[in-house]
Design a protein around this nucleic acid. Structure first.
Lengths: 219, 219
DNA sequence: ACCCTAATTTAGCCTTGCCTAAATATTGTC
DNA sequence: GACAATATTTAGGCAAGGCTAAATTAGGGT
């Protein structure tokens, strides 16, 4: 049994690798809300573990080994299944599921995992559009096309929102920018100016930091 | 936020107080599967906490203060609600719910608690017949009449089974001795000999250590 | 009343995972 | 190519909550 802390590190390394490519000490520190010195300590421990869980090169960064990736995927499967279960079975709002799943993911048994997966019909996507890894470790490809890159005139479908901040998620929900919402790009101001999008009958101006976190599929 | 460990101690003290009256160091140690020396250390810490969580007298034992009792009841409410939820919503067998609830009880939010309580219709009894404390801290009286004390000829209803061991619970289930089962006491051998009980069409001989853990209501 | 046994407590140590402060490495700029 | 700014690592500590071994206390039996 691995500690919650180890599971959190492996999960974070997986997700940061996905989102940013290279995983540095400081990136992990920000993400896990600990000091960089603590990250160095833990990362060295993970690299010394048998089987080795991460590949670590001093002053450069860290990446998962196959063994580390497998554990990360199990934790992420737990997390995303739980998020979906909370939303579907218990009526949670999409901005509340992450915090609860964060705690539950480390303690549920395989039986619990299997039972909620079966009840949900072996789902492949969580309430934020992130893919749910299968038990065999396969993961569907997620959209990597930020709304930021959409051109005026395009119509797209919101496929994924890559942020856990409840305030941010509530803000989006209020605008009608929810999972699978259809959005029309009306206009883009130059120099990273706001993107104007039409959602239903309303038009909103979205800043760059917002559109960077919304991933879409062409419609 | 209290540590899982502190919550476990308070819960155990509450339950042992209920079941045995006086709570000694060694009783707690057995129950929590730690060494007596560790119990002494933690109990002293709980007694020094502000607000004080336990009353502790060296070499005599411990008991909960009102503040400690309140926390214990919250943890127990979590535990028993979760047990019932696992059984009713996820189809767990009654011998599997305890282990899972043991881990979940420490991490669920109040929102989770409220949502499953509402879904279950604000239940008052868990799958083993233990009362579920209400949010205001009130607890229904549980049966304190062990099957051991029933006389030949009596017909009783199984109201509560006070053991978490999965093997024991599966054994009882196999005999048909489940919650609310109707049982007839046929015969009692002298000198703590086995009690013969009729359940449905079958008769079983139950040893003292078994009948001590089954609590009944007159039928 | 005393002594022996069993229970309890104390003392001292270990591991985990975090922290701060100081040292060191890397990198971008001139 | 040197140096300043930034990132990372090392060193040393701390709190929690276990453990073992040794000391102490309580209580029952004679």
């Amino acid at each position: 049994m691995l500690s919650h802390s180890v599971e959190d590190y492996l999960k974070a390394i997986y997700e940061l690798e996905e989102d940013f490519g290279l995983v540095t000490t400081s990136l992990l520190a920000v993400h896990l809300d600990v000091r960089p010195a603590s990250v160095t300590g833990m990362v060295q421990k993970l690299a010394k573990a048998r089987p080795r869980l991460v590949n670590y090169e001093r002053h450069r960064g860290v990446g998962l080994t196959p063994a580390g990736r497998q554990i990360a995927l199990e934790v992420i499967r737990h997390h995303r299944l739980i998020e979906l279960y909370l939303a579907q079975a218990l009526g949670y709002e999409w901005d509340r599921v992450d915090a609860e799943a964060e705690k539950l993911e480390h303690v549920i048994s395989e039986e619990f995992e299997d039972k909620i997966a079966a009840l949900l019909g072996d789902p492949t996507t969580d309430p934020h559009g992130d893919p749910i890894p299968a038990k065999d470790g396969t993961v569907a490809e997620a959209s990597r096309r930020p709304l930021t890159s959409s051109q005026p005139g395009e119509t797209v479908r919101v496929a994924r929102v890559r942020d856990d901040d409840p305030a941010f998620l509530r803000y989006l929900a209020e605008l009608g920018v929810t999972l699978n919402a259809i959005v029309q790009v009306a206009d883009r101001a130059p120099f990273d100016g706001p993107l104007h999008v039409v959602v239903g009958a309303r038009t909103h101006a979205l800043g760059r930091s917002v559109t960077d976190k919304i991933f879409v599929e062409p419609q």
